[in-house]
């Protein structure tokens, strides 16, 4: 399976994502520069964490206009798997591929620590190997990770089983403890925590692997 990792000016977890899928998962990772107009032959796309365009204007607000985003939208529209992590999640909501927005953490502080996540659904290509009866230890590293959406959108997300992960002990004020959401077609997921940084014992946890293993299992089945 080939994962395309988009590199925006200011991305800084692009190599973490590539390392997780290549060195840990044993798959192929290809970097795609943001001004590319095509994704090439990839089976899934990762928008990595970082500070694209220095978070100027709003997190993800400039990156959404990068030429590669037209290709990402088409890829998603055709049913391709798109995973946005941290800044990648912020870019996906700015681009309108996922609902809601990510705003300044409730306590104003940049938070860099491990959190516990509970899968909200296992009915998705990103969580199909997860178990709802346990929690997953994964790090967060963000200043603008407070998920916000209006009540109607939140009710819709819950009714359609589109909350991918919830925080156990809400670190940042996210509404309804939301850490990650899915689009309606369930092939796009945004996640504030960093599963790619919890993939080897040396990192303190391997719990993030479940996201990539789930994606791989779906690609292998297809």
């Amino acid at each position: 399976m080939t994962f395309g990792v988009i590199v925006f000016p200011g991305s800084n977890r692009d190599h973490d994502a590539a390392y997780a899928v290549a060195n840990v998962l044993g798959q192929k990772a290809e970097f795609i520069w943001h001004d590319s107009t095509s994704l090439g032959a990839v089976d899934a796309v990762i928008l990595p964490g970082g500070f694209s365009y220095g978070d100027y204007l709003r997190c993800g607000a400039i990156a959404k206009f990068s030429p590669v985003m037209t290709a990402v939208k088409k890829f998603a529209g055709d049913g391709g798997l798109v995973l946005g992590i941290c800044n990648g999640f912020q870019i996906l909501v700015e681009a309108g591929l996922l609902p809601g927005a990510l705003i300044r953490n409730r306590g104003l502080q940049f938070i860099c620590r491990e959190v516990q996540l509970r899968p909200g659904t296992t009915d998705s290509p990103f969580t199909c190997l997860a178990r709802k009866d346990r929690t997953y230890r994964v790090p967060i590293a963000h200043g603008e990770g407070c998920y916000f959406a209006d009540e109607r959108t939140l009710d819709e997300l819950e009714a359609e089983d589109r909350i991918a992960f919830r925080y156990v002990g809400n670190p940042n004020g996210s509404v309804r403890d939301i850490a990650g959401v899915l689009n309606r077609e369930r092939n796009v997921m945004g996640l504030m925590p960093h599963p790619e940084d919890a993939t080897e014992p040396l990192m303190g946890s391997c719990d993030g692997l479940v996201v990539f293993q789930s994606m791989l299992s779906v690609a292998v089945r297809a």
Binding site: I103, R104, N105, R106, G107, L108, C146, F148, D150, G173
Partner: peptide
């Protein structure tokens, strides 16, 4: 500016 329904922790701190 933020909509009135959106939390503004910076405004609250000020």
């Amino acid at each position: 500016s933020f909509k009135s329904t959106v939390l503004d922790p910076q405004g609250q701190t000020i």
